[in-house]
């Protein structure tokens, strides 16, 4: 099923990768073929970020990298050396919830919960971009994050509530 790859010359050559993840500096030693997603999940114990396709098609792996939402499965960890990453585990201080997290619970914006970390990180990134004003625009700019359970309307309701709150603050 997989296409055969040529032997990677760097198979044995790990490289130091420095990341600041949720405010904590992490020094990792990774092969260049490790994605940012696997660096978080398999090498840093941060399994809140999910793998749904590994091809940038579902959005479950969305994290915030240097203030922007990125698909961590399409980013090689070595290319993010020196970056500041925020994952679902770090969007609110420990013991506290981000307003979006609260709104997601209140609006029942998930069922299985697997797309949720990506939806929330993506929504935080989207709000920061400041492009989406209307519900239609929010739906459009959140469309890279799939939800198979069909919690779509509840997800958008939760985001709109928080977006409207921050507009009025």
């Amino acid at each position: 099923m997989l296409t055969e790859l040529t032997e990677p010359t760097t198979l044995k050559a790990s490289q130091p990768v420095n990341l600041v993840v949720n405010g904590t500096p992490l020094q990792l030693n990774l092969l260049p073929w490790v994605s940012l997603l696997d660096a978080l999940r398999d090498y840093s114990g941060l399994t809140g970020t999910k793998k749904g396709c590994d091809h940038g098609q579902c959005g479950a792996c969305t994290v915030i990298c240097d203030g922007k939402r990125v698909l961590s499965c399409l980013s090689l960890a070595v290319s993010k050396d020196g970056s500041e990453i925020t994952t679902i585990e770090g969007i609110a201080p420990e013991g506290d919830l981000h307003p979006l997290q609260k709104a997601f619970i209140e609006h029942d914006a998930f069922q299985c919960g697997y797309c949720t970390p990506g939806q929330i990180c993506s929504a935080i990134g989207m709000m920061k971009e400041g492009k989406a004003k209307t519900r239609a625009e929010v739906k459009e700019l959140m469309s890279g994050n799939l939800c198979r359970c069909g919690a779509n309307t509840n997800i958008i309701d939760a985001i709109m509530e928080v977006q409207n709150q921050s507009v009025h603050e």
Binding site: E89, F104, I105, D108, G113
Partner: peptide, 13 residues
């Protein structure tokens, strides 16, 4: 509200 909601929105589920 879903009782496991907190775990699902914080990535700890």
């Amino acid at each position: 509200s879903r009782l496991e909601g907190h775990l699902k929105v914080t990535g700890t589920a």
